[in-house]
Amino acid sequence: MGISRGARLSGMQKQVLSLYRGFLRAARSKPEEERRKIESILSEEFRRNSKQVDRKNFIYIEYLLRRGKKQLDQLKDPGTTGLSSLQVHLPQTNKRGH
């Protein structure tokens, strides 16, 4: 949907940035190592979508926002240590097998 450079933010952009902020806040409560991993996945995901998703494709962006909010609620759960269970298409990050 494109990343704004200093222009005034649309309502939808604000929602996306707010979601990003929410994720970064939730990541703060995790152990240091997990936190770094979560932050790098977040940064990658948001930037990838910002490049790939057409900024006028409101229906799809709305869908991503809804999905993101659900994932954020899961991440806020103290038992959740990583994003691996939330984003199945990404490599597993917290299943170490021992």
Binding site: I3, S4, R5, G6, L9, Q13, L17, Y20, R21, S50
Partner: peptide, 19 residues
């Protein structure tokens, strides 16, 4: 400096800096 105009950052970087 302005984060985006002068430092070449995007709005996601802006969020990270404020955090």
């Amino acid at each position: 400096v302005h984060f985006q105009k002068d430092l070449g950052l995007d709005s996601l970087d802006n969020v990270e800096i404020v955090m």
